[in-house]
Simulated assay, not measured.
Amino acid sequence: MQFNFNSAEPLYLQVAEQIENAIFLGSFAAKEQIPSTTEISRDFQINPATVLKGMNILVANGLIQKKRGLGMFVLEDAQEKIRTKRKDQFFQDYIVKMVVEARNLGLDQATIQSLVERGFTQE
């Protein structure tokens, strides 16, 4: 995990995003325990209350679960929930804007599809 202490984004949101990303990428598997609030706060010199605030966001979003006396664990469907959220965000952030711009340029759906296909082959 890496945190930007100079960012305008609050640290608790960075904590939530970092753990969410680790779950999404498989660093923390379903049913696996994630590092404790104490571990994260000690390792990265972040206030434990700040770390807990970030973790509570993930609890509220149904990605991790508190097990009293044991710690925090990744829920079984967490990775799929994150994938769904990111697909929806991708649609809103990129596809909707692309379609609006395409219409402004007078491009039809077939032209956009061919441009997207071209983009995939340019990798």
Rank of each mutant, 00 (worst) to 15 (best):
G119H: 08
F73K: 04
Q113D: 14
I64G: 02
A60K: 12
R86A: 03
Q109H: 05
V74I: 07
F120G: 13
E80F: 14
E101M: 12
F90I: 08
R42S: 11
T111W: 05
L63E: 02
F5L: 15
D77H: 14
R86N: 11
A30F: 03
T84A: 09
T84F: 07
S114D: 06
K67E: 04
F44V: 05
E32K: 07
Q79Y: 06
A16N: 02
V74A: 01
L25C: 13
A102D: 05
F5T: 13
N4D: 15
I34G: 00
K81G: 01
L75Q: 13
S41R: 07
F120R: 12
V99E: 12
Q14W: 01
P10Q: 11
L107S: 04
L115H: 02
M72K: 04
N47A: 11
R42I: 14
A102Q: 04
A30Q: 13
T111D: 08
G69C: 03
V99P: 00
I46P: 00
Y94C: 07
A78K: 01
T38L: 14
L115T: 04
I40D: 00
E101F: 13
S36I: 11
T84V: 15
D88P: 01
F73W: 02
T50L: 03
Y94S: 05
V59M: 09
Y94I: 06
A49Y: 13
V15A: 01
V74P: 00
L70N: 10
Q33E: 15
T38Q: 12
G119T: 07
S27H: 08
D93L: 10
A29Q: 12
N56E: 09
I112Y: 00
N21I: 07
A102T: 01
L52Y: 09
G106V: 06
N56G: 05
T50Y: 05
N21Y: 03
F120N: 12
P35Q: 11
V51S: 00
L58A: 01
S41Y: 05
E32M: 05
G54K: 00
Q109Y: 09
A60W: 05
R83T: 07
Q2E: 15
D93P: 00
S27C: 12
F24C: 06
F91E: 12
L25K: 11
V74R: 00
R83V: 07
F120H: 08
A29G: 12
Q89T: 03
A16T: 03
I46G: 00
E117M: 11
A30L: 08
Y94L: 08
T121D: 13
V99F: 12
N21Q: 04
G106E: 08
Q109D: 03
Q2G: 15
F5M: 13
I57T: 04
Q113S: 10
I57D: 03
R68I: 07
R68V: 09
N6F: 13
